[in-house]
Design a protein around this nucleic acid. Structure first.
Length: 365
DNA sequence: AAGGAATTCAACCGCACTTGT
DNA sequence: AACAAGTGCGGTTGAATTCCT
């Protein structure tokens, strides 16, 4: 047990995902949603095990995965949470919307551990490596950061102090999480360049550029052909402040969904819309850019003012007969009149509660 | 410029847990 | 209750990339 039976099949692919595989999985999930992962590869036409598909979706393909460097606030929060929770990356990830447990774990192992050691702090115990040593400036800085974000998390026997801590911690989360007026499914989360701190981010395209990285050299020409998937690791970041109207949006991996929007819009207009003309293309881009996505907390779904788009399935409905479950999933996730419902995607380790501090978090502590 | 070392991060492995029969 | 199948999670690996000499 523990290992998927499908993993035992020798013909299944392993290793890095190709752009084609990404596209297949993305199209499948955005169309049908996630039901049973073990059936996803077959339905999506992938030679992968369900577990691998699940991981790829959660860590990379999900539209609300936040990409890019960790902000100082996130970094401090991770350190504070780690002090309390230890290596419970999934739990830590729930407090950092858009970040995956894997990403946080990697960040901790590659950067934060080293940083803490340099500051004379044991990353495991969060205590000074040499307790007799006077704290230096770095330590004071870290302590101050810990106070800023995590004092609340310090556990001691004084219940009143703990309660005060909860209040402080909630206040901190209030500041960064709750003030968001508009749900940001693509994870800009208020800290990255180009989005305001209040999180009132309505610029879809910019969000994509922030969330999906690509080398700057790819920004040449103007091309709306769909081709945004890449499985290559992105070790460099694009400075999108330099984007111009001549910038190629679709060549880079950043604009997957905006390209889907564009393609779908093209298709929905019966291909009568000629986007070869640069003005038309820019007009289309403006349309996408001006799309406002907002989170409807009552109906727990994503709404947009740009309705009518539709994601491509891997196969057309003519080609594949949908099971009742698939039909249900399809309607569950997408309603042409009400917008795309990301809330029905499994959230797993990601922030199921983007707005807040769930009580059970503290109960677990 | 070349090549070895170090770093990063996507993906895999396997265990524990949950759910269904 | 027992078993099988599915899911979630943390630890680990190794290829790709960057850094350093």
């Amino acid at each position: 047990m523990g290992r998927h039976s499908c993993c035992l099949k020798p013909k299944l692919r392993k290793g890095l995902w190709s752009p084609e595989e990404d596209e297949k999985l993305f199209n499948y999930i955005t169309t049908f949603g996630v039901g049973c992962w073990s059936s996803v590869p077959k339905q999506a036409g992938l030679e992968r095990c369900g577990k691998s598909c699940r991981l790829r979706w959660i860590n990379y393909l999900r539209p609300d995965v936040k990409r890019g460097m960790f902000s100082q606030e996130e970094e401090d929060l991770i350190i504070s949470l780690h002090e309390v929770l230890g290596n419970r990356w999934a739990q830590i990830a729930t407090k950092l919307p858009g970040r995956t447990d894997n990403e946080i774990k990697n960040f901790w192992n590659s950067c934060l551990k080293k940083k803490l050691k340099q500051q004379g702090i044991d990353p495991n115990t969060h205590q000074p490596l040499n307790k007799t040593e006077e704290p230096n400036e770095n330590k004071l800085r870290t302590k101050s950061n810990a106070t800023k974000h995590g004092q609340a998390l310090a556990i001691n026997n004084n219940s009143s102090s703990f309660e005060t801590g909860l209040t402080n911690y909630e206040a901190h989360l209030d500041e960064h999480f709750l003030k968001k007026q508009v749900f940001d499914p693509f994870g800009s989360f208020g800290f990255q360049v180009g989005s305001d701190e209040m999180g009132s981010n309505s610029n879809l395209l910019l969000q994509y550029h922030q969330n999906f990285r690509s080398p700057p050299e790819t920004h040449q020409g103007l091309n709306f052909e769909y081709g945004g998937f890449t499985s290559m690791p992105h070790l460099t970041y694009c400075d999108y402040s330099n984007l111009t109207e001549q910038t190629d949006i679709s060549e880079n991996s950043s604009s997957r969904i905006s390209n889907l929007f564009l393609n779908e819009t093209k298709e929905s207009s019966g291909n009568s819309c000629n986007l070869n003309n640069q003005d038309d293309q820019l007009q289309m881009m403006n349309m996408v850019e001006n799309t406002v996505f907002s989170w409807n907390p009552t109906e727990t779904k994503l709404e947009s003012t740009f309705h009518g788009f539709q994601f491509n399935g891997v196969k057309s409905e003519d080609e594949v007969k949908l099971s009742s479950w698939q039909e249900e999933q399809k309607h569950r996730h997408y309603n042409a009149h009400e917008g795309f419902n990301f809330s029905s995607f499994p959230l797993t380790s990601l922030s199921e509660d983007p707005c807040g501090v769930s009580l059970d978090f503290f109960e677990q502590i």
